[in-house]
Simulated scan of single mutants.
Amino acid sequence: MSKRQTMTENIPIKSKKMKTPEDSYDEKSDYYENEETDSDDDIAIVGVGCKFPGADNIEEFWKVLYNGENHVNEIPIDRWNVEAFHSEDLDSSGKTYAKHAGLVKNFTQWDNKCFGINDTEAKEIDPQQRYVLECVHMALEDGGITRKSIKGSDTGVFIGNFQ
């Protein structure tokens, strides 16, 4: 599978402008319009960067989904001592009743120099913030975008995250 090919290549994608709810719906017309637009409201998703349990990038994530893999496992001792924080009592303060989790690999490893962050500061950065930096970098690379090409441009990065 090449860098730009994914397991979704056979899924048809419509590239059409959706009518707004204010537009009247005509049963004879399609819900989508086929017109090109050039608006300040236009957006483009040009690259994807992600890390999930069992997947360090989008291609691996598609494989996990395709294969129906489950990467929720018993929490390893090198992550934290589950027994010290576990309780069967759901109302127990400061404890968890979960002994399993879907965890991302290599959470302590990252190339802080790539982001211009010195070693001292790098030790203090939250792993979630490191993942954001890495995934944004990954998305830019996936889209073929360099730092130089977007410097000073009206470029935004939008992040989807949940816990």
Rank of each mutant, 00 (worst) to 15 (best):
156 G>Y: 10
68 G>M: 09
158 F>Y: 11
75 I>D: 01
85 F>L: 15
103 L>G: 08
118 N>R: 04
80 W>G: 08
70 N>S: 14
26 D>T: 10
127 P>L: 08
3 K>C: 09
56 D>I: 10
19 K>S: 15
97 Y>V: 13
109 Q>Y: 07
150 I>W: 07
143 G>N: 03
93 S>M: 05
63 K>G: 01
44 A>P: 00
109 Q>R: 14
77 I>Y: 03
20 T>M: 07
126 D>I: 08
97 Y>M: 12
163 Q>W: 10
163 Q>H: 14
121 E>R: 03
122 A>M: 06
125 I>W: 04
102 G>M: 13
78 D>H: 06
149 S>L: 01
41 D>W: 10
122 A>E: 01
73 N>C: 04
150 I>S: 07
48 V>L: 12
88 E>V: 11
75 I>M: 01
111 D>P: 05
38 D>E: 11
35 E>R: 06
59 E>D: 12
13 I>D: 04
50 C>E: 02
8 T>W: 05
157 V>R: 02
33 E>P: 00
161 N>A: 12
1 M>E: 07
97 Y>P: 08
57 N>V: 10
155 T>C: 07
14 K>V: 03
17 K>V: 14
30 D>L: 06
108 T>C: 05
3 K>I: 14
155 T>P: 00
56 D>Q: 14
49 G>C: 01
153 S>K: 12
60 E>H: 01
56 D>F: 03
99 K>H: 07
160 G>F: 10
68 G>S: 05
13 I>G: 04
129 Q>N: 05
69 E>W: 04
132 V>I: 15
56 D>M: 13
9 E>V: 06
116 G>E: 01
50 C>A: 02
54 G>N: 01
66 Y>G: 02
159 I>V: 11
28 K>V: 13
121 E>A: 08
129 Q>I: 06
119 D>W: 08
163 Q>R: 10
142 D>I: 06
52 F>G: 00
55 A>I: 06
154 D>R: 13
92 S>G: 00
71 H>Q: 02
109 Q>K: 15
44 A>H: 05
78 D>E: 14
92 S>W: 04
43 I>R: 08
61 F>L: 14
139 A>E: 01
45 I>S: 07
163 Q>T: 15
113 K>V: 04
130 R>L: 09
32 Y>C: 11
21 P>Y: 15
54 G>Q: 03
93 S>K: 14
30 D>V: 02
60 E>D: 11
92 S>I: 07
97 Y>A: 14
92 S>D: 10
121 E>D: 09
90 L>W: 09
98 A>W: 09
73 N>Q: 05
96 T>G: 06
5 Q>Y: 12
112 N>S: 13
65 L>D: 02
136 V>D: 00
148 K>S: 07
143 G>R: 00
124 E>W: 02
128 Q>Y: 10
17 K>G: 03
66 Y>F: 12
91 D>I: 03
89 D>I: 12
144 G>V: 10
148 K>H: 11
106 N>L: 08
93 S>I: 15
27 E>N: 13
162 F>W: 08
139 A>S: 06
77 I>M: 09
119 D>A: 15
139 A>K: 03
155 T>M: 06
125 I>C: 05
78 D>R: 03
111 D>A: 02
117 I>W: 00
22 E>T: 13
43 I>K: 05
137 H>P: 00
11 I>V: 15
51 K>I: 14
10 N>V: 09
33 E>R: 06
11 I>M: 13
48 V>W: 00
